[in-house]
Amino acid sequence: MRILVQEAPFDFGAEAQAFASGHKDMGAVVTFTGIVRDLPEDDLDRMVIEHYPGMTEKALEKIAEEATMRWGLGDALVIHRYGTLRPGDMIMMVATAAPHRVDAFEAAEFLMDYLKSRAPFWKQEFTADGGAWVAAKDADEDALKRW
């Protein structure tokens, strides 16, 4: 299991290849990457993500351990960026390896739902009108309830 919270961009292809190549005993590897999307009005200049070093990594490790136990994962990877990101930037990556695809997909979705609604990150969106903190969305909370 690998948890990275970093400011620097990551190479999705290299990370996915490295993760998948180390799992000859697993029948499925699922990867997902989240991208900063522009606002419907097309005026997002940037998103700034803050976190508390140490606390964030521990929280992500705990949820990855839960996913590993619940779905019998052979491995998990979570990368999440912080700092200033622009539309189109990769913000996070999740990868799971499991003996069977259903477990790999469900564990990845569980991790993504957690990252979206419970991980200790604080996000501000900046437009020409200024900055605003990103509030939790009901749809994200509903997605988490299924687990």
Score class of each variant (00 low, 15 high):
residue 1 M to R: 04
residue 6 Q to H: 11
residue 6 Q to I: 05
residue 7 E to R: 10
residue 10 F to K: 00
residue 10 F to W: 04
residue 11 D to H: 12
residue 11 D to A: 15
residue 14 A to K: 08
residue 15 E to W: 12
residue 17 Q to K: 15
residue 17 Q to Y: 15
residue 17 Q to H: 15
residue 18 A to G: 08
residue 18 A to K: 12
residue 20 A to T: 06
residue 23 H to K: 08
residue 26 M to C: 06
residue 27 G to C: 06
residue 29 V to P: 00
residue 29 V to S: 02
residue 31 T to A: 14
residue 32 F to P: 05
residue 33 T to P: 02
residue 34 G to M: 11
residue 34 G to S: 11
residue 37 R to T: 05
residue 38 D to I: 14
residue 38 D to M: 13
residue 39 L to V: 10
residue 40 P to M: 11
residue 41 E to C: 11
residue 44 L to F: 12
residue 45 D to C: 15
residue 45 D to P: 08
residue 46 R to A: 09
residue 50 E to I: 02
residue 50 E to N: 01
residue 53 P to Q: 01
residue 53 P to C: 00
residue 54 G to W: 08
residue 54 G to P: 02
residue 55 M to L: 08
residue 56 T to A: 10
residue 58 K to Q: 13
residue 58 K to P: 10
residue 60 L to F: 01
residue 62 K to N: 04
residue 62 K to T: 05
residue 62 K to D: 04
residue 63 I to P: 02
residue 64 A to S: 07
residue 65 E to N: 03
residue 67 A to Y: 00
residue 69 M to F: 12
residue 71 W to K: 10
residue 74 G to C: 06
residue 74 G to M: 00
residue 76 A to R: 07
residue 77 L to V: 09
residue 80 H to W: 07
residue 84 T to W: 07
residue 88 G to F: 06
residue 89 D to H: 07
residue 89 D to F: 11
residue 90 M to C: 14
residue 91 I to M: 12
residue 91 I to N: 02
residue 92 M to Q: 05
residue 93 M to F: 01
residue 94 V to D: 03
residue 94 V to N: 04
residue 95 A to I: 03
residue 97 A to H: 03
residue 99 P to T: 10
residue 99 P to S: 01
residue 100 H to I: 14
residue 101 R to M: 05
residue 105 F to V: 13
residue 105 F to D: 04
residue 107 A to V: 10
residue 107 A to C: 07
residue 108 A to F: 01
residue 110 F to Y: 10
residue 110 F to D: 00
residue 111 L to D: 00
residue 111 L to G: 00
residue 112 M to G: 03
residue 114 Y to T: 07
residue 116 K to E: 02
residue 116 K to S: 04
residue 117 S to A: 14
residue 119 A to I: 02
residue 120 P to F: 08
residue 121 F to L: 03
residue 123 K to Q: 03
residue 129 D to R: 15
residue 130 G to C: 08
residue 130 G to H: 05
residue 130 G to Q: 09
residue 131 G to H: 07
residue 134 V to I: 09
residue 135 A to M: 13
residue 136 A to V: 10
residue 136 A to F: 14
residue 138 D to E: 10
residue 139 A to F: 13
residue 140 D to T: 04
residue 142 D to C: 12
residue 143 A to N: 10
residue 143 A to Q: 07
residue 144 L to M: 12
residue 147 W to C: 04
